[in-house]
Design a protein around this nucleic acid. Structure first.
Lengths: 240, 240
DNA sequence: CCGGCAATTTGAGTTTGGTCAATTTGAAGC
DNA sequence: GCTTCAAATTGACCAAACTCAAATTGCCGG
């Protein structure tokens, strides 16, 4: 189902790393034959191995991108929401999508054919730079994820996740969990059971979870825990 | 210590994803004020947080890039060798290097100031495309690494590592370990002790390790093990 | 060949986190 | 309010992987 682009949508597009810095004329040309598409929860945007011919901007809702292993296991690579673009690197370099994309909630996305943007790169080097800036951001997020997987325990990774959602850098803070627990677990590289258990352990650091909210009593305290050396935690000194 | 660029070096530069597809004239202009630099084992190329002003091409040797966590732990993100470029994304988008770079062996690298390449992007869109292609490759490698960390056991990750080094896709194959065991372990997200132990377990899949070589008796058999579902391995059916 | 030292392996114990299954919770629909 | 069902939590058990330390191996230089 395709919907026209409203002014509200246009403003969201203006928030993206990829398209936000372009001139009005350039932007309107690039999205001139794009339109907002509705996806219901669970619907597939593209599948790993498909020809990569478009990238996406999230207007509303949540999208997960994941690798499907040979054995059929899903490894979540990233989760995107409103104001974020993704899949542009694969779309511009051609070939296939290295991941699959799926709507986690009912969503609305702008699907942008890469051909139009690709053609304009010849006349407008700023587009190449915008592409690189956006891809560089994604790269940085992946680097941070690898760091967390390699250097931190599951509970620490959850702490980092909550801290990123916290609006304040100190004091008490209430945070809304943006998507369901199974997906949070998958995003952080653990199973839902382990997520539940680690939530309980975070009580020792002033965190309580009530339905879709996390209450952090002392943001700095949680930050200290998140930044602790893993070895220190594993030899039983991780708790107050 | 700076050395001039030989014809041999020039050929190596021609192998890189970033510079390999450029015209001769463009390439010579870009590296006109670059020269090969010698780094001794353990020497730092750049430190996380430094201003990102150059990218690198490995002419000889091995380089690791890694994140330094707040607590001082090192998380290896990637390892590069001859014919590979790295750090270009950070260099072109400005800001700081998100990782540190260090020579793992005595090495020779071409250090390329990003300014020269940056200037030429205005006249030559192919440079923007080359940058994107190169960065996209790095993105893909990171995605694969996250997949392996989330969906596979340590022994499987080692199997994948060996299979990537194998020259043949079936039968018996002898593989040289390209760098020391501690670094292999760090690259694969485990400790050296665990690497040793997993090597022993891989004997059940026809792999033997002798000094700096791995002997794979049956590449396909090892491939089967690597691709198995993690849950299957963890419930004790991972062995023949 | 010998000695020194760094890298690696092995041993022992602990913790993290997975698998499997049962129970509980919460949301949605009637 | 009740029922249904999916999501989440909890329990029990097990193994992967970590920490720490000791033993072994291999490389390099004299």
């Amino acid at each position: 189902m395709q919907l026209p682009i409203s002014n509200t949508d246009f403003k969201v597009v203006r928030e993206t790393a990829l398209l936000g810095g372009l001139s009005d004329a350039a932007l309107r040309n690039i999205i001139s034959d794009s339109s907002a598409q509705q996806y219901t929860r669970g619907q597939t945007l593209f599948t790993q191995g498909d020809n990569a011919d478009a990238f996406f901007v999230v207007l509303e809702g949540w999208i997960k991108v994941f690798r499907l292993t040979t054995s059929g296991t899903e490894a979540v690579i990233g989760i995107f929401t409103r104001g974020q673009n993704f899949a542009e690197a694969a779309a511009f370099t051609g070939g296939v999508y290295p991941v699959s994309g799926e709507a986690v909630t009912d969503s609305r996305l702008l699907r942008v054919s890469a051909r139009r943007l690709f053609e304009r790169i010849r006349e407008s080097p700023e587009i190449g730079l915008a592409m690189l800036a956006s891809t560089s951001q994604h790269l940085h997020l992946l680097v941070r994820q690898i760091e967390a997987l390699k250097a931190h325990t599951g509970a620490q990774r959850i702490a980092e996740f909550l801290l990123e959602l916290a609006a304040s850098s100190n004091g008490r803070c209430v945070v809304d969990l943006p998507y369901d627990r199974a997906l949070i677990a998958a995003r952080l590289g653990m199973k839902p059971e382990s997520l539940s258990r680690a939530f309980n352990r975070l009580a020792d650091f002033g965190v309580s979870i009530v339905q879709r909210q996390a209450i952090i009593e002392d943001v700095e305290r949680l930050q200290d825990f998140a930044e602790r050396e893993r070895a220190e935690i594993m030899r039983g000194r991780g708790e107050d």
